[in-house]
Computed example of a mutant assay.
Amino acid sequence: MKTPLKPITRNQQNHTVSLLHQALAALGFSVSQKEVSKSIAGKNTIKKVRELQAKLKVPVDNNFVVDEATALAISKELVDQGLTAAGHSYKESGLVQLANGAFKKR
């Protein structure tokens, strides 16, 4: 199974951590707003990941917040709960103002 999550280390700060926060929230393990707003894998993120690892019976590798096995387990859980299905997508429509000032419906 391919997963957008990659291994994450303590205090890592990037888009992968933001994806982790989104996945954790979708699975009912919301992380503190402070860490979410900074996209950082801090103490609260680690706590929530450890809780999820226990629930999913994934062994903990203390060298990582999320290792390969955990990333795969999270992806599988999201799929199993139907949280990655196309039914969760949406489409936006509206008016776009063109460079010449005219409006076009999209």
Rank of each mutant, 00 (worst) to 15 (best):
M1E: 12
M1S: 14
T3F: 02
T3I: 06
T3H: 09
P4I: 03
L5H: 07
L5K: 09
K6I: 00
P7A: 06
I8W: 00
T9P: 01
N11L: 01
N11D: 08
Q13A: 13
Q13R: 14
N14I: 05
N14M: 06
N14W: 00
H15W: 05
H15P: 09
V17I: 08
S18K: 11
S18F: 10
S18A: 15
L20N: 04
L20S: 04
H21W: 07
H21L: 03
A23E: 01
L24C: 07
A25E: 15
A26E: 02
L27C: 07
L27Q: 07
L27A: 05
F29E: 13
F29L: 08
F29Q: 15
F29S: 13
F29C: 11
S30D: 15
S30H: 09
V31Y: 04
V31P: 01
S32C: 02
Q33A: 06
Q33D: 09
K34E: 10
E35W: 07
V36D: 00
V36Q: 04
S37H: 02
K38A: 09
K38Y: 05
S39E: 05
I40V: 07
A41T: 06
A41F: 04
G42N: 01
I46M: 14
I46W: 05
K47M: 12
K47W: 12
K47Y: 14
V49E: 09
V49P: 11
V49G: 08
V49T: 07
R50I: 11
E51S: 14
L52D: 06
L52R: 00
Q53W: 03
K55R: 15
K57Y: 12
V58T: 03
P59E: 12
V60P: 00
N62L: 15
N63R: 13
V65I: 12
V65L: 11
V66F: 06
D67H: 00
E68D: 06
E68L: 05
A69M: 00
A71E: 05
A71Y: 02
L72Q: 12
L72A: 15
L72V: 12
L72R: 10
A73H: 03
I74W: 02
I74P: 03
K76I: 02
K76A: 12
K76Q: 14
L78F: 00
L78N: 06
D80K: 12
Q81A: 00
G82M: 06
A85S: 05
A85E: 05
A86H: 08
A86N: 10
G87S: 14
H88G: 15
S89V: 02
S89R: 11
Y90L: 10
Y90C: 12
K91Q: 01
S93F: 01
G94E: 07
G94Q: 06
L95E: 12
L95V: 04
A99D: 15
A99W: 01
G101H: 07
F103M: 15
F103G: 09
K104M: 14
K105D: 14
R106Q: 06
